[in-house]
Design a protein around this nucleic acid. Structure first.
Lengths: 342, 342
DNA sequence: TAGGCCTTCAAAAACGTTTTTGTCAACGAA
DNA sequence: TTCGTTGACAAAAACGTTTTTGAAGGCCTA
């Protein structure tokens, strides 16, 4: 089924059919109606390749999902909700979202993948997730003049469109809560510092410490990947310290759950003898033992904002410099934290 | 950068350049080399829309990821690993994988989405995940003559290419283990029966019971979604029974973790007073309290098989009827199960 | 009544490829 | 010498759209 066949069937010219379908004004309402009806009947769908070829628009936004290689968790479950939100918004604007995966973490291959994605012309706009402090991807997108919004911020002099959760505030809140519980040795289990979110979380953490004139202790600031395994290992390390922390704030719920297990192993009662808070309000955090105090940050909502931002950019309603959205966070108190007993 | 510009730059015809780049034989090695070199220098990438338009091939396989609606976990983390494996294999064959999301669970919209995806001509082949007992999507793919492989089986008379984990075996093993522990009242916390995997799990479960001449009790066979919340609620329900089960097998680790929490709430010691096994060997199962006995099923490996199968289909190396792969499963014993004490 | 302006449609060029069908020269065999 | 064969390249058509340009007819205005 092509537009040619459809036009022939209707006894109209190709151009009239095309213009009707694309909402131009110079088609009479009666004809337009007739065209739409028949198009639906015959199940006509414009060939996106041809459309892209001629008009330069594909009606698709793209995202490349990061991986952690073989077997390891491939897409953070956070992205699931995020992309759901993005898609839900884009849909309203007649766009859709396609994702492709990055199987390896090699920066050269990553660049090639993005180059391919952009130059190939599959997508009209890009979503860049898991931003790094120095992110070559935003330079690349800019170079190719493709609209983009980042989820997470980055270090750059030029303006760019971003949506982010308030990582700094989140860790300021979490750390503050620990301090107000009377804790003085508060540890931070953070992600790799190459990611901007990790920097911001560290910043929020140190700010809270500074506010209460507590010197920050490098021994208590650890970086690992965001998994349970890593949280478990780092917490073990902390507990073996001559002066172990009495409280821990973790970069993910997964890490916190790893930490919970490490404490259990040592017979330390979490919520009483040690105070732990996670981040993300993941689905299993409420069912951990003890239920995890954590920070909730409307990921789906964030996705919606990204979707809207992409649409505004694509329609020319806004410049990148106009698009900055910081999603608020809220602490969800449960049972894994509590007053300092030492 | 187009092939026209590249050809002009080289002083060759468009067709020669195209044929060289596409590996045809009738280009001299010297010229071929020159073309490849210059193409790389100028960063030439063929426009996929134009290529698709002319040749009918897009070098892309597609998958539509299911959702559970607003806010709820959007992509099962299982798919993360799965798609990683698929992509890793496809890459070798010069294909790549694109995913799009299904924001709502409405079957009409789902059909439209698939129709769009297929008719739009974005993809050369399809991966269909989370198959249902009666799955309209395989009928649709067949109708449009697009190669496809399913992850999970379905009920159909015609042959089709599938890759699956041995769900029946998995639940046969898990249930058998419980029975051999001396349990007689073994409950099954299953997924919705519209999904084929849920049927197979039920089958494995009942088979094990039958083997030991234990009548299956409908009160002990519950169906819910695959989340912690659902596992929690259903386990609560089981424990309130006049004759509660002494063992539970769960369709996902998430459900099992919910069940763990329900037992904790009641002060029932898991692994001693009740025996629970999960499914999936998810990253947090090892860190649950107690560590969860579960079933491991190489998801990434499954993805690789899917990728290979798609490639074989695309190359015409195999017919759908030739492609049936059942991934073996292995039980990972940990601490959440044990002998019957009642 | 003539000129101009809408309204509604159509013709045709273009987008960047792939592929079919050549062309031309060199070469070997009869 | 002639005739086919082969090797290396080129011309041109086609894929299914969008968009520019234009044309026919009706209507309004002077």
């Amino acid at each position: 089924m092509s537009i040619v066949l459809l036009a022939r069937d209707l006894g109209l010219s190709i151009s009239t059919v095309s213009r009707a379908l694309n909402g131009y004004e110079d088609v009479s309402p009666a004809t337009r109606e007739r065209i739409f009806k028949r198009a639906r009947e015959l199940g006509y769908k414009p060939n996106p390749g041809a459309r892209r070829l001629k008009s330069g628009r594909s009606s698709m936004c793209g995202v490349i999902l990061p991986s952690a290689g073989d077997g390891v968790r491939f897409v953070d479950s956070v992205y699931s909700s995020l992309l759901g939100g993005v898609e839900a918004e884009l849909e309203n604007g007649g766009y859709s979202l396609i994702a492709t995966m990055q199987t390896r973490n090699d920066p050269v291959r990553e660049a090639a993948l993005y180059e391919n994605f952009i130059k190939g012309g599959w997508v009209d706009a890009l979503l860049i997730v898991r931003t790094r402090v120095n992110d070559t991807r935003v330079a690349l997108a800019r170079k190719h003049h493709i609209p983009f919004v980042t989820y997470g911020r980055t270090e750059t002099t030029e303006p760019y469109a971003w949506v982010d959760t308030d990582n700094e505030k989140a860790f300021y809140l979490a750390t503050m809560r620990q301090i107000e519980f009377g804790h003085r040795r508060v540890a931070l289990l953070n992600g790799p510092l190459e990611f901007y979110f990790a920097r911001l979380r560290e910043k929020g953490y140190t700010k809270a410490l500074a506010k209460h004139k507590i010197p920050s202790d490098p021994l208590l600031m650890l970086n690992g990947d965001l998994s349970e395994v890593s949280g478990f290992a780092m917490c073990r390390q902390l507990l073996a310290l001559p002066a172990p922390p009495t409280a821990i704030v973790c970069a993910t719920d997964a890490m916190a759950i790893g930490a919970l297990a490490a404490c259990r192993e040592r017979g330390i009662e979490v919520g009483k003898n040690i105070s732990i808070v996670g981040y993300g309000n993941s689905s299993h955090s409420a069912f951990a033992d003890p239920p995890l105090t954590t920070i909730d940050h409307a990921v789906f909502e964030n996705g919606r904002h990204i979707g809207q931002s992409l649409l505004r950019l694509l329609r020319g309603d806004a410049k990148p410099a106009d698009i900055h959205y910081l999603e608020p966070v809220v602490l969800v108190p449960r049972k894994s934290d509590g007053p300092c007993t030492k």
